[in-house]
Nucleic acid binder design. Sequence first.
DNA 1: TAAGTGCGTCGTT
DNA 2: AACGACGCACTTA
Length: 174
Amino acid sequence: MKDESQFENQTSELPIQTRDGEFVAYYSRKGLCGLDFPDREVQQERKGNGAEITSEIQRWHEVTTRALENALAGRLVKELPPLDLSCGTDFQQRVWRVLKSIAGGKTLSYGEVADEIGARKAVRAVGRACGANPIPVLIPCHRVLASNQKIGGFSGGLDWKRKLLAREGVLLLE
DNA sequence: TAAGTGCGTCGTT
DNA sequence: AACGACGCACTTA
């Protein structure tokens, strides 16, 4: 599944104040590797372990902060920091790559995502992979709906999913 | 139509 | 071996 060296496993965490509360970003040596919603229990394994906050990470964090502000406002995200998705399996990373390609205001169904990665029938597995997305909002798993524009699920809570989609102008059925 | 049931399918635990 | 952030076919009312 994963095979990270101790070195790569080091992560630092930095807060991001937004109008929706304080998010927390996690960085590995390779890039942004996690993002938590406000008021969320910090997962043990992803929690920053006191790694040094390098100037490189500070630069990434500025990019992340801008990206998050834009995303939360439903605006176009122009730039993302490097992402470290090495915590995911091959399958999950393929799914997340598709999610990144969904433009703001657009949506795909779980089935369409499965199609994109050439695993048409792995629909439910795609749902699981979405739920395992370590960087919600910036990797827009909220833009994946069930068929017929129904909302589907969201690990961060359906309220967030509805809010994010509404700000992008996506109409839901329900 | 709308709402409910059953089941295939497959990555993950 | 069991469980989903699904999707479809197929009842019912």
